[in-house]
Simulated scan of single mutants.
Amino acid sequence: MAPTPTTPPAPVRSAYGRHPLQHGFLHRAPGAAPRGSIVVIHGGFWRSGLGSGQLRPLAESLAAEGWNAWEIDYRTVGADGGWPETFDDILAAVEHLAVLSRDLRFRPGPVVTLGHSAGGQLAVAAAARLVTGHGDGVRVAGAVSLAGVLDLTQAVKDDLGDGATPGFLGGSPEEAPERYAAADPCTLAEHSSWPVWVRSVHAETDSMVPIAQSVHFTDVARAAGWDADLIPVEGDHFTVVSATDASWRKTLNALGELPTQAGWKPAG
């Protein structure tokens, strides 16, 4: 048997829509049997300014660990985004994996959404929406939140990101209750009819997005029957997205639990 290559192929750029921000880079795992596919979602409090390149080292690390990493960009507030356009882009990008797997002839395996900060909210909300498979049939097996904004009502009370949450959803919870109900991971967990596998990695001394966001979400999700767990780590808001920090190894280890925890089996 030929040895499995250790260097992933060069990333492939692909557009999932017509807007300049509706694109991503697929980092293919080496070998013929990837462990699954991870949709990598950057943060930035849903505002323009950051791009998918922010999390490229994580995507490269995931590919080296045997995962296909679909590192995406999307419309943000200030760049034709907001609600629902930003979230629609996340769903479309996930569904685009069906196109990529067909065109590039690979098995996506279990699909996990992984997001940092505001990207954590997008990752968990997308998993809640797509856990049973919709659209082209891409089923999301679970989500990983890295220092995620997972309690939107509390985020408004704490004014996280200087008004970022009402800026994203077009108002306060009182002004836009239907939008909060559709976007808030805590509310989605409370009202979900299907359990979701979620791991929240959060630094205990994060001053930008307090760990209380992940603590409360995990409590709510567990009470709702989700397979949710909190993984506290050392560092700050950006430590969790450093591919050279020990916290990233904890994230990789958590992903390694996915096949058993979520009822999937690795390819091959």
Score class of each variant (00 low, 15 high):
A2R: 12
T4D: 14
P5C: 09
P5T: 10
A10Y: 05
A10D: 15
R13G: 12
R13S: 15
L21E: 12
Q22N: 03
H23G: 07
G24C: 11
P30R: 08
P30S: 09
A33S: 11
S37P: 05
W46F: 15
S48K: 01
L50D: 12
G51S: 13
G51E: 07
G53Q: 09
E65W: 09
G66L: 06
R75C: 04
G81V: 06
F87Q: 15
I90K: 02
L91Q: 08
A92M: 12
A93H: 04
V94F: 10
L97I: 15
A98M: 04
L100N: 08
D103V: 09
F106Q: 05
G109R: 10
V111A: 08
V112L: 06
S117H: 01
A118K: 12
G120R: 02
Q121R: 10
L122C: 01
A125M: 05
R129L: 10
L130Q: 07
V131L: 13
G133S: 15
G133L: 14
D136E: 13
V138Q: 07
L146P: 05
A147P: 03
K157D: 15
K157T: 14
L160I: 14
L160S: 05
D162L: 11
G163S: 13
A164F: 12
E175D: 04
A176C: 14
A176R: 15
E178H: 10
D184G: 09
T187I: 14
A189N: 05
A189K: 05
S193T: 11
S193H: 09
V201R: 00
T205V: 05
T205C: 00
V209N: 08
H216A: 11
F217S: 02
F217W: 12
F217N: 01
D219Q: 15
A224R: 07
W226E: 01
L230D: 04
I231V: 14
I231T: 14
I231Y: 03
E234C: 02
E234N: 07
E234K: 04
G235Y: 05
V241G: 04
V241D: 01
A246I: 08
S247M: 04
W248A: 03
A254F: 02
A254Q: 06
A254H: 00
L255D: 07
T260R: 10
T260P: 00
